[in-house]
Design a protein around this nucleic acid. Sequence first.
DNA 1: ACGTAAGCGAGACGGTACGTCTTGTCTTTTG
DNA 2: CAAAAGACAAGACGTACCGTCTCGCTTACGT
Lengths: 197, 197, 197, 197
Amino acid sequence: MAAAGAARRGRPRSPEARGKILSATAELLAEGGFHAVTMEAVAARAGVAKTTIYRWWPNRAAVALACVSARMAPIAEDGPAGSHRERFRRQLKATNRLLNSLEGQAITALIGAKQTDPMLAEAYSEQIARPRRAQTRLLLMQAIRAGEVAAGTDPDEFLDAIYGPIYYRKIVSGETVTDAFIDRIVDAAFAGFSAAP
Amino acid sequence: MAAAGAARRGRPRSPEARGKILSATAELLAEGGFHAVTMEAVAARAGVAKTTIYRWWPNRAAVALACVSARMAPIAEDGPAGSHRERFRRQLKATNRLLNSLEGQAITALIGAKQTDPMLAEAYSEQIARPRRAQTRLLLMQAIRAGEVAAGTDPDEFLDAIYGPIYYRKIVSGETVTDAFIDRIVDAAFAGFSAAP
Amino acid sequence: MAAAGAARRGRPRSPEARGKILSATAELLAEGGFHAVTMEAVAARAGVAKTTIYRWWPNRAAVALACVSARMAPIAEDGPAGSHRERFRRQLKATNRLLNSLEGQAITALIGAKQTDPMLAEAYSEQIARPRRAQTRLLLMQAIRAGEVAAGTDPDEFLDAIYGPIYYRKIVSGETVTDAFIDRIVDAAFAGFSAAP
Amino acid sequence: MAAAGAARRGRPRSPEARGKILSATAELLAEGGFHAVTMEAVAARAGVAKTTIYRWWPNRAAVALACVSARMAPIAEDGPAGSHRERFRRQLKATNRLLNSLEGQAITALIGAKQTDPMLAEAYSEQIARPRRAQTRLLLMQAIRAGEVAAGTDPDEFLDAIYGPIYYRKIVSGETVTDAFIDRIVDAAFAGFSAAP
DNA sequence: ACGTAAGCGAGACGGTACGTCTTGTCTTTTG
DNA sequence: CAAAAGACAAGACGTACCGTCTCGCTTACGT
């Protein structure tokens, strides 16, 4: 708010440049994956000076992240039809489709890159992970209130128990994630977190 | 047998060079993480020509992988004490300790790198993932025979259900993995995969 | 004028860098001959990035050429004393001293290199050969006007007839060029090109 | 002699290998000039081990030289028809054709390479330059005895005076050598070295 | 209205590491 | 014991990007 009120001096930053940078990044991601998103390529493609990119993002990973988080649709809100278990299944299958899409390739690449880049890890956490986790947490709360999941359940533990295996197959083992696998994992979690330990 | 019997011609490759390369890689991993494992640095540290490294590994990731897989202790075989559930807990906690160790840093870095490097992905799968999975699968089979896990359980589904959340926290969300978390995940899996679906 | 008026965009190239590169090249030429003029060595010695060198010269021969042509004194203008025959003798002896100097080693090396490098051949022609030939041609014209050389003489034929043997001994046969040899060659040329064919 | 008499033990040297090496060298010279004659390429093309080449020649230049000097026809002995001036003209024109041929490309490349390679320079001198000079010197001696060239003429000076300009144009200035140019140079030399200075 | 502060394009710069190429040597097995 | 095979140390090559820097030009706010 302060910044907005201060009426910043000097030439205001060009929203057009920002748009061209993100579009160019998206194209490069589509064509050659994260590997193709080099600062030089983005600048050339966007018709923008490298300095302009560096003014707003510290490195290529941050640019790719901004691009992905701007373009990534929020988790599908596909209506309250069915049980909460059913709604989790749909949510996980949507996530799986996302991970298999082009944006998904960028996401896994970013998850890969953040292993060796703390700043990117932080950015990923804030811009991608936290918002999505907040959203899925709401559904879990409803499920708990509805009695489908045990009352004392730690939300993160439950959510990690169902999202973990999906990401694990995608990122660690490389096996394909089938709908059947998702069904089994959700069932196991609902069973595991309903019965009192 | 075929390879041994073939009596290869020409100067045999130097096991000494291989050893020096892997040692140098290990040192660099320890000092600066995967980021520090550049071909130049490895060659310089090992007192070896770059070409010698390239003759045997296609890129730095492969070298680091070879280094890690050579040095990584196999999953601790800590004896059959306790229930299978208990043994799984111990196994997962050992894995967690491994991931938090220096080798673990290399492993997560490699998992990160393989997101954008199919050859590394394949190498990781063969040299790290498959052997470890084979080992854990044995324990699961015993648990199934002992009736602690339902008879029809797909081994990969069960194992992904317990290893997935650990790796997820380590690699995707960045949260720390506590022993309590491991206990919960194992309990949930045993509960989820004991009840018939 | 066009170039000056173009108002070049971007950061202007650094004359300092250019100077450091040429100085380093000169030093290396002096120390180890053309053989020592590697891009790496020049860059290291000049405290300049290799890319900066490659931005302006395509290869080490071109750098050495630029260095030599920048440093090479123009053909000594030693005054109009004596006959034209005498002045040619002095000019050839100065050329011989140049070829025997350190720059001369670079020149012969460049002539050697240009045998297998058309671009370098072109550069040599423009930066070294053409200006020197233009200068010697002037003296020949005077000699023709003075009647010391036959009126219809083709300048290039005469000049090749006197410079050819010098370079031939230096570059092809490797024999040393004495002042006596130069005197004989000049005399023979003046005799050969005065009598009408 | 001792060696020959000693009935040398072990596997005898393969003359076949030598032939294959020289053939491969000739092919490479034809295809890519001296630049393409690398030890690796020769070995690969000839189906011969690098060590075998190194056993007989010290470096690639020596191999190329051996190849050229083996293949280069001696100076055409085209009969005593015409004056000695005429015979020199024919000899120089033959030399010019040789320099413009494929072997000629190799020769100029070798002359280029020897500027920075003393060993090659020595080898060139012995294997190429000296034999040819000896041959041309014979013709000059006849010309002197016939009175076409002045009695006191230093053979090397005369021969450098006519060969120099040809090689100069070929190697230094890059201009084409026409028959007319050769005629003029020969005439000038005969005029220059007949009249007493 | 005009000065000045920031944004912007262009592109040169010092660097790092890449993966390749070739050299000349060394160490085996084969003939 | 020579030849063939091929691994080895060394080191330069030319390229790709990095992140920084200096330019001249543009845009909008402040006085």
